[in-house]
Design a binder for these strands. Structure first.
Lengths: 172, 172
DNA sequence: TAATATGATCTGTAAAGCAACACATATTGT
DNA sequence: ACAATATGTGTTGCTTTACAGATCATATTA
């Protein structure tokens, strides 16, 4: 067959594929943070859940799941495992008895504090090639992209609104 | 890597969690590019495979799998489906008859060309909040991170070496 | 030639997304 | 108040994918 492959796709080569670079970063971060997790219940995913729980911004399991992009049926047994591990509790919401408020236990908060340090270390390893200020630029741009208006992406959820409001820049 | 992190618990709130923002970006990109894919065999994953195949840099299926961070057993039936769809072919390597060289068919190259435009559009949607020059900065930093020395991340593979050599010093 | 390594495939298991259903509770319309 | 509808949670079943292990063919090395 033909062997002129180098020319056919030169546009892709020159700027590298965004999806591919993104994938590499995610895998590196996944690996590094998993290593930093040790025995923590559900690895990086579990860590994210605990961060969200401790932040106290998500009123129930469904909100928690949507915030993290996890299926709500998965969230059920994810929380189950966290309860078993004594890291969080399900509390009944007197204002809406269908919902379960997920709150961190003292042990959960302690565990998170311990982990955060190592996770930040993992981040630095992954971003290691960048200089200090470049890392901050990267994080800043990434944050802005992640907090962008959902309408443009048709993602269906305002990812950062609660956080923004908490910080005082309430915008809708 | 010593760490002079400030105060653990509040710092996460104020600078948002890196893993979370990364997750949001990945999901947005996933959704946007999936929508752009239409009926394409394996969605964004399949697209990545085809990009790698057309680039012609991966000598066999295993290299292909490692380049994309896909398990080698998955790559087998991924390629199967692409062959069925007439997008790629498995060719025997006379120099090593264990390996299968995966090459794109004409239809495969045409299909990729068609997709690339839409995928780039999806990228722009995802990065929509950033200005033009900011997007380029972001892509550039991301590229550097993805192509970083694997030793630092213990990922086991030099992700960009073949590419770099192709663009500059020539082939191995 | 024998031992070992590598590439591809197949099989089986587990995690996780997804859809559909069931149940309890809230909200809304009449 | 009652009925209809919506919502939060949990469960079940299906599908995709990751991952580990075994098998087979072929290469490489002792």
């Amino acid at each position: 067959m033909s062997n002129n492959t180098a020319f056919a796709s030169s546009s892709v080569e020159s700027q590298k594929d965004f999806g591919w670079t993104l994938g590499v970063l995610v895998r590196n971060y996944q690996n590094a943070s998993t290593a930093a997790m040790g025995e923590f219940p559900h690895g990086p995913r579990g860590y994210q859940v605990l961060v969200a729980v401790v932040s106290g911004e998500q009123p129930n399991q469904l909100a928690l799941a949507q915030h993290l992009g996890i299926d709500r049926t998965v969230m059920t047994y994810l929380i189950d495992d966290f309860v078993k591990a004594g890291l969080v509790e399900r509390q009944l919401n007197p204002a809406d008895r269908r919902a379960r408020i997920v709150v961190a236990t003292h042990a959960g908060r302690k565990a998170l504090e311990k982990l955060q340090h190592d996770v930040l270390g993992a981040e630095d390893v992954v971003l290691g090639v960048l200089a200090e200020d470049e890392r901050e630029v990267f994080r800043s741009l990434l944050r802005r992209v992640a907090c962008a208006e959902p309408a443009a992406v048709d993602h269906g959820l305002g990812a950062c609104e609660a956080m923004e409001e908490m910080l005082g820049t309430g915008k809708k």
